[in-house]
Amino acid sequence: MGHSKVDKAASRERVLRIAARKVRAEGVTGPGVAELMKEAGLTHGGFYRHFASRDDLIAHATAAALAEGTAKMERAARKNEEDPRIGLIDAYLTQQHRDAPATGCALVSLGADAGRGNQDFKRAYERQVRAYLDLIAGLGHETEDARAEAMLTLSALVGATLISRAMADPGLCDELLTAVTDQLKQHPSTPPAPAV
């Protein structure tokens, strides 16, 4: 790959990274092309060398924002070797995650946009939901209910984060995160003890 192609690819990736952060923070209608290009240190006129349209950029940025989450979830789970599910819960339901939507889980910030979006957007969102369900189901013990438990866990993680971001009372926000964390940790994710 020639030098200019390498530069072009690096510039495109930089714009995508910034756009992915912006769509997590502001939704898909928030970031404008001029603002994104300026933040990437590029001219507005160079935009079309990288993307066919703003919609094309937003589609790629949304896919990138969603896909970034899998690696973060895997790292979070590895923080607790004895019980990776607890490691994931502890890392996800935090004030830091709540207060940083630009770097947080895109399932939280893009759910409403996906619900109103086109089929491609819905499919991208669904792919990420499926990836998280597989990841979470694989963290516990293999049981018949592992997938249902994963659905409950993912719904609680995303829902609690979304609700805590949407409220004004910091005390209630913190209380919600703590309560959901405690309840998820107490919820049976381990197989029942054998009968004696």
Rank of each mutant, 00 (worst) to 15 (best):
Q95E: 13
L184M: 03
L36C: 04
P170C: 04
A146D: 06
A52Y: 09
A65H: 00
R24T: 09
L42M: 10
A106Q: 03
I58E: 05
L162F: 07
D55A: 12
R21F: 09
A71Y: 07
L110H: 05
H141G: 10
K38R: 14
L16G: 03
F51S: 03
S53K: 01
Q183I: 09
T181R: 15
T94W: 04
T103A: 08
L172E: 11
A71T: 12
G104Q: 02
H50A: 06
L162G: 13
D120M: 04
A25S: 13
P194V: 14
P188R: 15
L42K: 06
E13T: 13
E13Y: 04
D55P: 05
G32A: 10
L157D: 01
V6W: 02
I163E: 08
D56W: 05
A52E: 14
H187Q: 13
A168V: 07
G32D: 11
D134S: 14
A25C: 11
I58D: 01
F121C: 01
A9H: 06
D83H: 07
D145P: 00
D56S: 10
R78H: 09
G159A: 09
K185N: 08
R123N: 13
N118F: 09
G27N: 05
G87D: 08
S164Y: 08
Q119S: 15
Y132I: 00
P170H: 12
L57I: 10
A91F: 04
K5P: 00
I163A: 11
A131Q: 13
A34S: 14
D99R: 14
D182R: 13
R78G: 04
V6H: 05
M37E: 07
A106F: 05
C105Q: 00
G46Q: 03
M1P: 12
T153C: 13
H50R: 02
L176F: 08
D90I: 01
F121Y: 13
